[in-house]
């Protein structure tokens, strides 16, 4: 299945802004984080198709995963 991954703020440094990946069925968000070497502690906010999600959630074909680090400045 095809998944679109969007990374935000510091997470895109050294990676990408947006990319499409072929993934096996039953891929979870945690699998995506592992593949990108993003510790779960760095994925403070996760959305799938514009709705809030958690690392253990399964992904489905054509899903778009958006991952944000902790945003702390002001």
């Amino acid at each position: 299945m095809q998944i679109t991954i969007k990374l935000f703020a510091m997470l895109k440094n050294g990676r990408f802004d947006s990319a499409q990946r072929e993934c096996p069925d039953n891929t979870t968000i945690q699998d995506i984080l592992n593949g990108l070497a993003i510790p779960v502690s760095e994925a403070a906010i996760i959305f799938v198709n514009g709705r809030h999600a958690n690392p253990e959630d399964d992904l489905h074909h054509a899903d778009t995963v958006s991952i944000f680090p902790p945003i702390g400045g002001g």
């Binding site: 502690s41 760095e42 994925a43 403070a44 809030h52 902790p70 400045g73």
Partner: peptide
């Protein structure tokens, strides 16, 4: 807290 997972506070200087 519904939105953001509470993580270890960063020690890096936040770029802004």
């Amino acid at each position: 807290a519904c939105l953001v997972r509470e993580t270890t506070p960063t020690t890096r200087k936040i770029p802004v």
